[in-house]
Amino acid sequence: MERNQILDQTTAIFKDILDNETIVLNDTTTAEDVEDWDSLNHIQLVVAIEKHFKIRFTSMEIQSWKNVGEMIDSIKSKLPEA
């Protein structure tokens, strides 16, 4: 899967979980840029992403992301090459 496809699908998950259709994600987006993206919703987002892409993150990976770009890199690294 292409990186921008992953970003689009992740954005859709964010919109659904945070119940906000105006969310636009890019590589530099952080929790501070998105209203309601806090520690509690973060876990819900992670669970939804894992379910959607059928992948599993480690605890260290989840806590090491500094922005959406790093999250997308993690997802991409776990998906089979096209």
């Binding site: 520690s39 876990i43 992670v46 605890s59 989840i62 806590q63």
Partner: peptide, 21 residues
């Protein structure tokens, strides 16, 4: 506490849904 206790715990318990939370 949210950053260093709750977050690691909720990640570890995320498979148990509301019970884990």
């Amino acid at each position: 506490l949210t950053d260093y206790v709750f977050t690691p715990l909720s990640i570890a318990f995320r498979d148990y849904g509301k019970l884990g939370l």
